[in-house]
Simulated assay, not measured.
Amino acid sequence: MRHRDNQLWLDPSTTNPATFAADSSYRITAPWVAGRRSPVVKGLYADPNIAYLNGRYYLYPTTDGYNGWSGARFKAFSSTDLVNWTDHGTILDLGPQISWADDRAWAPTIAYRDNRYYFYFSAATSIGVATSSSPTGPFTDPLGRPLVPAGFRSGQMIDPHVFTDTDGRSYLYWGNGSAYAVPLNADMISFDAGQVRTFSLPNFREAPFVFKRGTTYYLTYSVDDTGSENYHVEYATGASPYGPWTHRGTILAKNLSLGIKGPAHQSVVKAPDSDAWYIAYHRFAIPAGNGTNREVTIDPLRFNADGTIQPVIPTL
């Protein structure tokens, strides 16, 4: 334990002692509090979907750290305060549980209807759906095939998100390179392919996520490549789940002064009984992460008086 730059540091024994002007001794009189509040879940995770379900917040991320993003398992975490998270373990394992895919388990999302939870996920560049009576599974595949197969439309069929409007209608959004949406049928596991819409969004790359505040619909999405430090979040607003969309610009981007790179692939949640909102996203793991070694964090999402979103201040 050493003192450096007005901070107390815990360092490995391999640290060069010349880095420090002098050693110091301390008597600890209060519990140790880490300087960083994130990542909110320990380990390498990305593409977080955050949702408030049954009195708790839930996070459903991509399990990260694999070359080529080749992971095969999905986990779930839950919290009552967005700070302390419970690890619920693996809720879906592609290999033994999904007959049509066994790798590239990416970017899940969750929805709820009629006492069932619907878990939408990317696998082998297709989109699948699994169901459960619990937000932490176990989940099972009711279709035995992709809901949105690879090649269904231009680009990769990945990054699903389900938005349920105040009238109870649910919509599936997805896309990489092009953005798509379609109303889901009441069973939540099918749709009419003739109703698929394609959106033209400036700079769109992937990760469409829609939420509604008041009468305004917000479509957030990620720009650039997840392997780039310039990966960031832009958004548009509209008067319906289909828009038409008015581009509003960037709300989340890198901060190199803090070592924050590639902050994006976002999701948004509203705290119950309030107008407090939060954005979950991933960034390069600090200090030595990259596009396949990422970590998940959460920051407040704030609005201006006219309903536009204030730039998010990424924090450590």
Rank of each mutant, 00 (worst) to 15 (best):
F284W: 14
T164F: 00
K212Y: 10
R213Y: 11
S126V: 06
P202W: 07
T164N: 01
W85Y: 11
Q156Y: 05
K270Y: 02
M188V: 11
P138D: 10
P31F: 10
L172S: 02
S190P: 01
A280W: 08
V33F: 02
L8T: 06
I298S: 10
F199T: 07
Y281V: 02
T140E: 08
Y231N: 07
A76D: 00
Q156P: 00
K254H: 02
H232A: 09
D159F: 01
G144F: 04
A22M: 12
N115W: 00
L8F: 00
R104G: 08
S133C: 10
F284M: 11
Q266R: 03
A30S: 15
F199V: 10
A186G: 07
D225T: 08
D187Q: 13
A236M: 03
L8N: 02
S79W: 13
S170L: 04
P146I: 08
T220E: 12
A72N: 15
W32G: 07
D187F: 14
R248D: 06
T109F: 04
W106T: 04
A111F: 00
L172A: 00
Y52W: 06
V129R: 05
K261E: 01
R283N: 02
I98L: 12
T140L: 03
Y26F: 12
D23R: 12
L201K: 09
T250R: 10
K42L: 02
A46Y: 07
Q266V: 05
W106N: 03
P146H: 07
Y242T: 05
G68Q: 14
A288R: 10
D306E: 07
I189K: 07
T131I: 15
A124N: 11
G175M: 06
F74R: 11
W106K: 04
S154A: 01
M157E: 02
L92H: 07
N203R: 12
L94W: 09
A253G: 01
A30K: 14
T63N: 14
R2E: 09
T250N: 05
V269W: 09
S38F: 11
G175P: 00
P96I: 15
P142W: 03
A76C: 00
M188S: 08
P142T: 15
